[in-house]
């Protein structure tokens, strides 16, 4: 899923529109967090989904299948909020107030998650790091972000290789053996990550690294027009949410 989302971010139609998409997603996130959730959340989720699937041409199957994972967590949390413990009769019961809280919280969270996924599927890492650079985030933080991003994929490949090597030698034959070998794989990965870090440090030193990792700003095709549209949509969503929320 990590690879699929990353590949999508680097190949979608709006991959060079990092600035406008950041504005768009920030606006929608603001609506999700601040506007009345019952009215705002459906609009926010719809706008984010439409932008990703119809606008940027993110594959719908990938987008909505990925949303199922956080949806599972949200549903579990919502169920817990709906339940109350009756100490007098020592039993679990349904809580109306809890259900109302669960609905509002779940809607707000679902809208926020949809916006986050929209951003992740559309804006490549290099683009949003460039935006943070423009926002004057300290260079050392950005260097760390770059290294973490690269290392994630290198270690993911390492972990896959370790798991495959174990699997080919029947390392996952039974649940007990599988658990033990999964723990061993994590331990090996920890050691490999340290070795990788040492080798990368040497490699970067050979390329002239001293204390900074300067890189080019990725190309952007953003215009005033795209920024305006990116600001207008969340504004309309906010107005609609406030109007509908006032009527409820």
């Amino acid at each position: 899923m990590l690879h699929a989302i990353d590949a999508c971010a680097h190949t979608n139609r709006w991959r060079t529109q990092g600035g406008p998409m950041a504005l768009f997603c920030a606006g929608l996130m603001g609506c999700a967090l601040l506007a009345p959730p019952l009215a705002a959340a459906p609009f926010v989720a719809a706008a984010a989904s439409a932008a990703a699937v119809l606008g940027a041409r993110v594959p719908a199957a990938l987008f909505f299948r990925t949303l199922l994972v956080p949806a599972g967590f949200l549903a579990t949390g919502a169920l817990a909020l709906c339940v109350t413990l009756d100490l007098e009769h020592a039993r679990l019961g349904f809580s109306g107030a809890g259900a109302a809280t669960a609905l509002a919280t779940t809607l707000r969270a679902a809208a926020g998650v949809t916006v986050t996924l929209c951003f992740a599927c559309i804006v490549p890492t290099a683009q949003w790091i460039a935006l943070l650079r423009r926002a004057r985030v300290p260079a050392v933080v950005l260097d760390l972000l770059l290294l973490v991003y690269r290392t994630l994929f290198v270690l993911d490949a390492e972990f896959l290789a370790i798991r495959r090597a174990q699997d080919n030698r029947l390392g996952f034959r039974t649940a007990r053996v599988a658990g033990r070998n999964a723990a061993r794989a994590v331990a090996v990965l920890f050691l490999r990550s340290l070795q990788r870090a040492a080798r990368l440090e040497r490699g970067l030193a050979a390329r002239g690294y001293v204390d900074r990792l300067p890189v080019l700003t990725p190309p952007s095709t953003a215009t005033r027009h795209t920024y305006a549209v990116a600001a207008l949509v969340p504004a309309l969503v906010a107005v609609a949410a406030v109007v509908l929320g006032a009527g409820q």
Binding site: T125, R150, G203, L204, V215, P218
Partner: peptide, 11 residues
């Protein structure tokens, strides 16, 4: 992988 680190090839 000992010397590549950035977000994109050009970077």
């Amino acid at each position: 992988d000992d010397q590549l680190f950035a977000g994109t090839l050009a970077q």
